[in-house]
Design a protein around this nucleic acid. Structure first.
Length: 618
DNA sequence: ATAGGGTTAG
């Protein structure tokens, strides 16, 4: 029996006093230890209720040494103390220790309670240990917790995190009293495996929605490449009178980043106290990334400067942003700063740096960074690093060396790597190697129509008519639908979408008359439309007249007629920018004196005064 | 007398 059962005991008031002290927070471990010493002095240091509060507070300081000391000095730990131990270890990310602690608890003969399982299952989920999960699940059943909604929600989350969505669904379906949390757990799992339709059905069926469920859906759309749906839901959430939390904000910002929707992104960020972005590095990173992907590095840098506790991810986002926007010396300088501040770089840091080298064609610098990473820092290069190196070498025309590197890689090359080599083939007009690469790409991405189109174009150009025809019929057999080129432009906070040859826009007439006006100007400037790009074109479209109707041209023309003369025109395209359009947009930037930024699947093209920041390589 | 499950950026 504990001290609180006997109010007449002389220690009762002192125990109450100490209990109240535990309900406040502690500024330092020293303060906590002081209260511990008081417990010992007044002889209450074996009072399990108070010890449990002490143990719980001790985890705030992430000092497992002291935590263990408290626990081991307890003569007769009860199940509350064991649960607190497991929970605390999970809360400080010591998942293996948490599981070990659970094992000790069982060895000591304690039977887990309904509270124990959520903690230990969470540890298991974070370790992605499916086998242990199965064992725990059978204990859950054996000990009679199969109807506990808390325990089952943890199981759903565990299976979903490990990628076993069917098992997760099975557990979920059998939960008798589902609630908003268990629904959110399964929605997370469905979103993770890309099944947003089913996730949405469940979401719409949920009676009660809270900020977590909204945020989960928004984030699910954003990370599954459905940014418009993400933003639509974000608006819905606001209409329901909910204020975005940092999770919803990160989802909305990443959707804006994908769409290149700068104004929307700034509007979204204005819904949150601006200080939050300086205090929370996750939020800050999302905002940097949004600005970077919208081509606005000046603003990204302001955010970056303001973030108080810059972790490695913050630094990486800034470096990558600068690199992808072509500010290479600045990217190198920020890397220098990062080292000065003693933040050790990781693999992602080097992806950013190598991407910068590729952008600027700095072959030697790229080789140096690769060596620093591998030889000095002993970081194992991933396929992304090889992709950057292949890109770098290919761009410089070192196609053989790039091809050799692919063959010598410790892993199988993926489509990105082969795609980089193909870029080099395109730039340096090597159709033979391109044919080889495209065959690989068709194998690796049988669903990607662009590869078939390019391969067939190359066959046609080298008069291999039969091969060309075979590729075409293969496309037909596989029921391929060509991915239609699609571009977005945001004007006054509204995202306008254009498809190839689109005439559905309300201002379509104005857009096309602007295009024919530009056509005259371009011809007067001596521009001759080129057909050689057709060879490597991924959009299989008739080019019956110059300045045809590729989506990026439509979007640019719309930008010209609907924005002020000093505004930057920002277009985002879902495919690589077409070569012909690229030439045309360069000249449009010269004739109109406008700055035009086109982000395609590979990189930024900043057109200004008749040239492009990509130096005609993409 | 004590506690619990679900959501974020590269």
């Amino acid at each position: 029996m504990g001290i609180f059962t006997n109010p007449s005991s002389p220690s009762f008031t002192r125990a109450l006093h100490i209990k109240d002290r535990f309900l406040q927070s502690f500024d330092s471990l020293k303060q906590l230890k002081h209260v511990h010493s008081q417990l010992i002095r007044i002889g209450l240091d074996q009072e399990n209720y108070l010890l449990n509060l002490l143990l719980r507070s001790s985890f705030d300081f992430k000092d497992t040494h002291y935590t263990r000391l408290v626990f081991h000095q307890t003569h007769e730990p009860n199940v509350f103390l064991w649960n607190t131990m497991v929970r605390g270890l999970v809360s400080i990310d010591c998942f293996k220790d948490a599981i070990a602690s659970y094992a000790s608890m069982r060895r000591e003969g304690f039977s887990p309670t309904g509270f124990t399982f959520p903690f230990v299952l969470k540890a298991c989920a974070r370790l992605l240990d499916f086998r242990l999960g199965l064992k725990l699940h059978s204990q859950v059943v054996k000990l009679g917790f199969s109807c506990d909604v808390f325990v089952n929600t943890s199981l759903v989350s565990l299976y979903a995190k490990c990628g076993y969505i069917e098992d997760a669904l099975k557990v979920f379906d059998d939960i008798p009293n589902k609630n908003v949390v268990s629904c959110t757990a399964i929605i997370t799992g469905l979103a993770k495996c890309g099944n947003m339709e089913r996730a949405r059905l469940l979401f719409d069926e949920m009676g009660e929605k809270d900020i977590v469920s909204w945020s989960t859906m928004i984030q699910g759309y954003a990370s599954n490449g459905l940014p418009k749906q993400a933003l639509e839901l974000f608006h819905n959430m606001l209409d329901h009178g909910l204020k975005p939390d940092c999770y919803a904000m990160v989802g909305a910002l990443s959707a804006c980043a994908r769409l290149g929707a700068l104004e929307l992104g700034e509007w979204a960020s204005s819904l949150m106290n601006i200080d939050e972005f300086s205090i929370n590095p996750v939020l800050g990173t999302a905002l940097i990334d949004m600005y970077a992907k919208c081509g606005s590095m000046t603003k990204a840098y302001d955010v970056f400067k303001g973030i108080r506790a810059k972790d490695r991810v913050v630094w990486n986002a800034e470096i990558s942003g600068l690199a992808m926007n072509g500010h290479i010396p600045a990217a190198f300088a920020v890397f220098g700063q990062m080292q000065k501040y003693g933040i050790p770089p990781d693999g992602n840091t080097f992806v950013g740096l190598l991407c910068g080298c590729t952008h600027a064609g700095l072959v030697n610098e790229g080789r140096q960074y690769f060596n620093i990473m591998v030889r000095i820092l002993s970081l194992a290069p991933t396929i992304e690093h090889y992709g950057c190196m292949v890109d770098l070498l290919s761009r410089a025309g070192l196609l053989d060396e790039a091809h050799q590197l692919i063959k010598s890689m410790p892993m199988e090359a993926n489509a990105v790597v082969w795609g980089s080599l193909l870029g080099g083939c395109r730039l340096h007009r090597d159709t033979q190697l391109a044919e080889h690469v495209l065959k690989k790409l068709v194998e690796l991405e049988p669903w990607n129509a662009g590869n078939y189109v390019q391969l067939s174009n190359i066959y046609s150009a080298s008069h291999k008519w039969d091969d060309a025809e075979n590729v075409r019929s293969l496309m037909g057999e596989r029921g391929m639908t060509k991915l239609r080129g699609c571009s977005w432009i945001e004007v006054c906070g509204i995202v306008h979408e254009f498809l190839v040859g689109d005439t559905s826009h309300p201002l379509s007439e104005g857009i096309y008359s602007k295009l024919s006006e530009l056509d005259k100007d371009l011809r007067a400037a001596g521009y001759v439309p080129t057909t050689e790009y057709v060879l490597f074109d991924i959009e299989d479209e008739e080019k019956e007249h110059f300045l045809g109707c590729h989506s990026e041209k439509l979007a640019v023309a719309f930008g010209l007629i609907s924005t002020g003369p000093a505004e930057v025109i920002r277009v985002v395209k879902n495919l690589r920018v077409c070569g012909d359009c690229h030439e045309a947009i360069k000249l449009i930037s010269k004739i109109t004196g406008r700055e035009i930024i086109v982000r395609d699947t590979n990189r930024f093209h900043c057109f200004s005064g008749g040239t492009c920041s990509c130096k005609d390589y993409w």
